[in-house]
């Protein structure tokens, strides 16, 4: 009896496998060339569940569920400084059933650290949904009021800055600044944004560069002062609308920000790409989605696949120039 049961089971498994093989189509394309996925789409997020990147991706899956033909399912693959998630995305079949979140790390990590492959060359951008500029903050009792003061301070005394990681996005701006004005700055590396802000609040460092969302509560309470938005346009929120940009202050060469967008494995079909481009674009018209994006400190800024690729390439250009100019200043 057992033997019969067992062989039936094996047969059943074999049959399912054959059927599973047969169902290779990832979706269908109608007469107008519109692709519809056959099952849910997996979204690889290279951060642990619960972080801001994850919560934003979940916004597109939940609040924007109406724009997708089949649900988006978030698949968290944290670790390795995005290497694990990005590698999984590259290895996924380019059938439109797997996409992934790609933030600025897709470019920055390849240029400032070690990565298993060149992310920005081997992934296919889908679209950018948001952008945020970095902001320079100083402690409330620091005499520095603007970038000109910072220039003066860097030239005349030892200024200590707190950065979230070496060579990364919150470090090079002020090293570059100090170099450009012909001086030097002491950069101490802390373990992430909270620790850097704590260092400034506790008087261990005087200045730091952070994302607008990370600093805003401290600006509101008066513990930190925002002295410059590193972009050519001011932010529109109440807290930051009076903070002048680096361009306004005459330091136009000092600009940096970060983006949130989505990508696919290389080789994804035209129709599939269009499905996601259109989907994200439509999702951005939903008020709740826009609200969430702005809540996490981004400005809604849609770029289609080509536009997003251009953003990548521009960032690559910018970083290569900066890194070449800075030389070994970043690693000292």
């Amino acid at each position: 009896m057992k033997k019969v049961l067992l062989s039936l089971l094996v047969l059943l498994m074999a049959v399912t496998m054959v059927f599973a093989q047969g169902q290779k189509e990832s979706g269908s394309v109608d007469a107008d060339g519109n692709w519809t996925p056959s099952k849910e789409v997996s979204v690889i997020v290279s951060y642990a569940a619960g972080g801001s990147t994850d919560l934003l991706a979940r916004t597109f899956a939940n609040e924007a569920a109406s724009v997708w033909a089949t649900p988006l399912v978030i698949n968290n693959m944290p670790g390795g400084g995005n290497a694990i998630g990005f590698s999984a995305l590259r290895q996924a079949a380019p059938d439109g059933l797997t996409i992934g979140n790609t933030n600025s790390s897709v470019v920055v990590n390849c240029l400032t650290g070690e990565t298993p492959f060149v992310y920005y060359e081997e992934l296919q951008p889908i679209c950018q949904v948001g952008f945020a500029p970095y902001i320079v903050y100083v402690a409330k009792d620091s005499p520095i009021q603007n970038l000109a003061d910072l220039e003066e301070a860097v030239k005349t005394r030892d200024v200590v800055m707190a950065a979230n990681n070496r060579g990364g996005q919150t470090h090079w701006e002020l090293e570059y600044f100090a170099m450009k004005v012909g001086s030097d700055i002491t950069a101490v590396i802390y373990d992430g944004g909270s620790a850097s802000i704590a260092a400034v609040l506790g008087g261990h460092a005087e200045v730091t560069v952070q994302a607008p969302s990370d600093g805003q509560e401290y600006v509101r309470s008066g513990d930190l002062r925002a002295i410059a938005v590193l972009d050519d346009a001011r932010l529109e929120t109440d807290i930051y609308k009076d903070v002048p940009t680096s361009v306004e202050q005459g330091y136009g060469w000092l600009q940096n920000g970060f983006f949130h967008g989505y990508s696919a494995p290389k080789g994804i079909g035209e129709a599939q790409l269009k499905y996601f481009e259109d989907g994200f674009k439509k999702a951005l018209e939903i008020p709740e989605v826009r609200e969430k994006i702005e809540y996490y400190g981004f400005t809604v800024d849609y770029q289609d696949a080509e536009g997003f690729r251009q953003v990548w390439l521009d960032t690559v250009e910018q970083y290569k120039t900066v890194i070449a100019e800075l030389g070994d200043r970043l690693t000292e």
Partner: peptide, 20 residues
């Protein structure tokens, strides 16, 4: 893994999973 300060891979032998 990737050291937290320089982002350089140490003792990973090229294995991506060891990066973290």
């Amino acid at each position: 893994g990737l050291d937290s300060l320089y982002g350089k891979a140490r003792f990973t032998f090229g294995i991506v999973n060891l990066y973290s």
